[in-house]
Computed example of a mutant assay.
Amino acid sequence: MTIIVTGGDGYIGWPAALRIATRTDDRVLAVDNFARRDWVEEVGSVSAVPVGWMDERIEAAEEVHGVTNLSFVQGDLAEKSFVEELLTVHEPDVIVHAAAQPSAPYSQINGERANYTQHNNMQATRNLLWGLEEHDLNDTHFIETTTTGVYGAPEFPIPEGGAVMENQGERDDVPFPAMAGSWYHLTKSHDAANMRLAHSQFDIPISDVRTAITYGTETEETRGDDRLKTRFDFDYYFGTVGHRFAAQAVAGYPVTVYGKGEQRKPFISLEDAVEGLAELALADPDDRPDDLTVYNQVTRAISIVEIAETIADVGDEFELDVDVEHFENPRDEDETHKMEIENDRYMDLIGEQAQDFEGGVRDIFGTLTQYDDTIEAHEDRFLPGVLEE
């Protein structure tokens, strides 16, 4: 069996490929074009954690974990010719598609970046789906990390997948409407729709894994050697809220909460996100769903103010003097929105939560305090700035 992990150089893609490879003797092929490194450099930032190139990482995986079935190929999934060659040569049984331009702020900078984000993300997914059909690989399990951002912020509890629509006394199950709030998030709404169409037309088994905001620096496998670490972005464009707050604390900045900060967002640890992808990738073909299945890859919703206060509390353990400051909110948003999101299907997949947010923050500080010089050298990237054209 062959398992392809796209975005194999990325924050989630690399540790996912590593975990899958440690749990099977089947071939695992990581695919990436290293574009994430270029995007972060473009906005004037850098990963706080130094990340090796793939040959170095794969060598370390063999030395530390005895992995001999993990390999890498560089290429651009938005180029149909590359996807054609990839599928012809490797004929995958499973594809874990974690490759994308993942930043909402980056996609909002201007029309050029919005166009790039939508073309890059949707073209890659379409190339893979159509490639499976055109290469008679319709039994390949296609697993994509989309995002909980496709749901927006509805007032009702978010279902794990579709919704029920009623009109004139008749009811039917329908796909959840695209309520995304950025040009990036909308790419994943389109991907979800295209995957549903591909399943309907091509009968490809599909798992739509709607990934929440992910926190943490480590998984069980990456702890073994510095060469196995995954990237950690902390800038305004590519750093998620929890990661930015933690980096601000390490740099001696106050953690800034806009308004009340009581709105809740969906979160999951890197450890728990990787576990679900590995479970899906290694599922016995006879046991996995043949249908299109949606998983809300989230363990719980956390408020922005709780994130800030947890970072301040854990910071004390690392002798960091962390202040939490509230500022007038420049955004038009409900500062008290209590998101509720169903996740029974995903929790059944992973069994139980392996790392809570407090534990994730301890990991983050344990890592970032080793690289405080890197963060302080780029502290001007906590806020948006003038970008290179």
Score class of each variant (00 low, 15 high):
A98I: 03
L87W: 02
L387D: 07
A16D: 03
V250N: 02
L186S: 08
W39G: 00
T2W: 02
R362E: 07
R19W: 12
Y215G: 14
Q101C: 13
H243R: 09
A312K: 15
A246C: 12
T299W: 09
A377E: 11
I350C: 08
Y346R: 10
S200G: 10
N120F: 14
H337F: 06
D233W: 14
L270R: 14
T374P: 00
S303L: 13
L387N: 14
R300E: 11
E134I: 06
G224S: 12
A212D: 07
Q108T: 06
D286R: 12
G351C: 13
A247G: 06
P102Q: 10
V305L: 15
F382S: 08
E220R: 15
M195N: 08
A212P: 14
L77T: 01
L368H: 05
E62I: 01
L292C: 01
E144Q: 15
Q201F: 05
S107P: 00
A193E: 09
G10F: 02
V174T: 04
T310N: 14
S200T: 11
R381E: 04
R300S: 09
G315L: 01
E262S: 11
Q370R: 14
D284C: 04
Q74I: 02
D344H: 01
G131H: 01
Y258W: 12
A78T: 05
D172Y: 07
H135P: 03
G66Y: 05
V150C: 09
Y11N: 11
T222Y: 07
V89P: 00
E85P: 03
Y106V: 09
I20S: 05
D356F: 03
P254C: 08
A212Y: 07
V361E: 09
E91R: 15
G152F: 04
L137E: 07
I95N: 01
G242K: 10
E170L: 15
G152Q: 06
G276W: 05
F72L: 08
P92S: 02
L282H: 00
